[in-house]
Write a protein that binds this DNA or RNA. Sequence first.
DNA 1: GCCCTTATTGCAAATCATTTGCAATAATTA
DNA 2: TAATTATTGCAAATGATTTGCAATAAGGGC
Lengths: 155, 155
Amino acid sequence: MSELISQAYERLRSQGGRMTNQRRLLLSILDSLGEHPTAEELLLIARKQDPDLNLSTVYRTLRWLEAENLVSARLFAEERRQERFDAVLPSEHHHFMCTNCKNVIEFDTELLVDIKSQFQDSSGASVSMGSIVLYGLCPSCRQGSVAQELDREVG
Amino acid sequence: MSELISQAYERLRSQGGRMTNQRRLLLSILDSLGEHPTAEELLLIARKQDPDLNLSTVYRTLRWLEAENLVSARLFAEERRQERFDAVLPSEHHHFMCTNCKNVIEFDTELLVDIKSQFQDSSGASVSMGSIVLYGLCPSCRQGSVAQELDREVG
DNA sequence: GCCCTTATTGCAAATCATTTGCAATAATTA
DNA sequence: TAATTATTGCAAATGATTTGCAATAAGGGC
């Protein structure tokens, strides 16, 4: 069983919480999904298994997981008000969002620690965490836009 | 006259737009304010000069400035749904938010370009922009929390 | 396995930042 | 100065997320 799911069981046990069918389903989706779904997207996926699942339950589950630090929520500039949720991996990771297709790619870098300490040193603040978001065109949309440009030139 | 304000005049002229008292007021505040106000905060400040100013006007002005790339809007993790607005400076800059007092400090770094090119090279995407947000305690809240800890130990 | 307690759910209504429709107002320009 | 129409203020709408509450169902004890 995955880290996420076993951790969730453990946290529930220690808090007197209950492992419901809804939570089990949402956890298994979050665990296997290689994406960063919105609450709504997660609901749609989950409803294939449990058509009565409610959006409130999705939100409550996500918020609980967030409080337990098993999931993190992020807002991207392209979708101002809609959060995307992400099972927290052991290592700190960052995001790239394609401004065209809105797909999110995770990435990792050792360079952020330098930025953190640079800022700590110059400001006197203590930095506990940080995140980077990059925007641009993903490889396939990049190809698409090159193709479009060619079309325009030819047409 | 500042860059922001003269730019705004220029854009309005070229679009057949009008420089109203409300816009002039909001621009002068945004221009001089060394902070990252929310729309509501901006309204409160502006109402000292024009008590009838409406929140819709503030939003419309901010969105127009954003579309003109003269102001940028950001969401921080600590305030999930409320945007903060920021007159765009000539150089790309990043943000630190104090998790205690919610104050925002801007900072600059040459290290992001390395992260961008690192990611571009490894992913095949083309990155057009990026932003870093750091969270932690600002110098004064840091002092406060040190003081608290001492209190706890002594008391 | 069945009962009891109460955590969790589904539903509908509430929130809250932001947006929009519209009639009234005020910048521009002729 | 008048005419045109961009912009405003107001109230109502929106849309993601949250919350109150009665109904349901985990999980512990019998």
